[in-house]
Design a protein around this nucleic acid. Structure first.
Lengths: 180, 180
DNA sequence: GTCTATAATTTGATAGAC
DNA sequence: GTCTATCAAATTATAGAC
């Protein structure tokens, strides 16, 4: 039941953010009462932190599989782009952490901390994928571009209901990687 | 008073999105009662549409000034990047339309339409700035990358409380423009 | 244009039975 | 673990006086 709640909460947050769902919504969706949801997660803050952590784990597990056979930077980053594309196409929804990042000024500090960890984990993964580049500052800058562009692209794909944003941005990022 | 309400609503939405403010919040901030806010804007939906339209006008007015003396693509796009940077540094907040785009699945259709117009207006501006590039598909793809990357960057700058995301992404985008 | 008053609903959270 | 029942507060919105 706990994981069923997490899954449902993730879906609902990805539909409209922190304030777009209630404990009663979750309860109805999983077939229990809201008081029972509170048994599993004492507060909304705690629930959302757990959702972010769970989402992050899933994301990097999937990413590892996608990049399992990749040996060079280009194919690793191609796998990174494909992870964002599939995150969109499989649900029609945006990135959980992208959505919550945009609301951060009105979120509890604990959620902010979880989101920062997701960003750092993305940067670590990207920096590692780019390790064949000699200059560390150039690596960092390219990593930042990949992360922010794909976050922006998945949000715009949801808005316009068109995968072309993620697809097109991915293609351009990989092309610029070769040239630069 | 109407414009005072618009300004306050913009500020509050940029702090946490559609569901992170109430008519009472607005009323208290501008010094009237919530019923009086309803006199100016019948519904929350109408208020938010007006805020998006007002924000869009301001954004492009500012952008025009920034790019007034720019003659080539590179300097025009430099002005575009600087507009995002200033949108962040002057407020510490993200882009209004980036925030709302992320919540779009739970927003009224009329707001979605306003947001789509903002994206289209950005694409039009960028396509025009890139008009010296021969290939139209390549122009479109580059335009998409600039818009999405800066939207993602400003959100991440807010999350981490660090302008480096917008600055660094801007620099890389302009660098890749020269190379590709 | 702004007010008071209020309707109708929803929210996060708790107490206590089973 | 799940339930019923409930609380205190907040929400969008409206009616009608001034």
């Amino acid at each position: 039941m706990k994981s069923k709640i997490l899954k449902t909460a993730e879906e609902m947050i990805r539909n409209g953010g922190y304030n777009a769902f209630s404990f009663r919504d979750i309860a109805a969706a999983v077939g229990i009462k809201s008081a029972s949801v509170h048994y599993h997660f004492a507060t909304k803050e705690a629930l959302v932190c757990a959702v972010v952590e769970h989402y992050s784990e899933d994301f990097f597990t999937f990413l590892s599989k996608q990049a399992a056979t990749a040996t060079d930077a280009h194919s690793k980053l191609d796998a990174y782009c494909k992870s964002f594309l599939l995150a969109y196409t499989s649900t029609g929804k945006s990135c959980l952490c992208g959505i919550l990042s945009n609301e951060v000024c009105s979120l509890p500090d604990s959620v902010r901390a979880c989101l920062n960890q997701f960003v750092e984990a993305n940067m670590d993964w990207l920096m590692n994928a780019l390790s064949e580049l000699p200059n560390i500052e150039s690596r960092r800058t390219k990593a930042r571009l990949f992360y922010t562009a794909l976050e922006g692209a998945i949000a715009t794909s949801v808005l316009t209901n068109d995968a072309v944003w993620v697809e097109s941005v991915s293609a351009q990022l990989l092309k610029d990687l070769k040239n630069g």
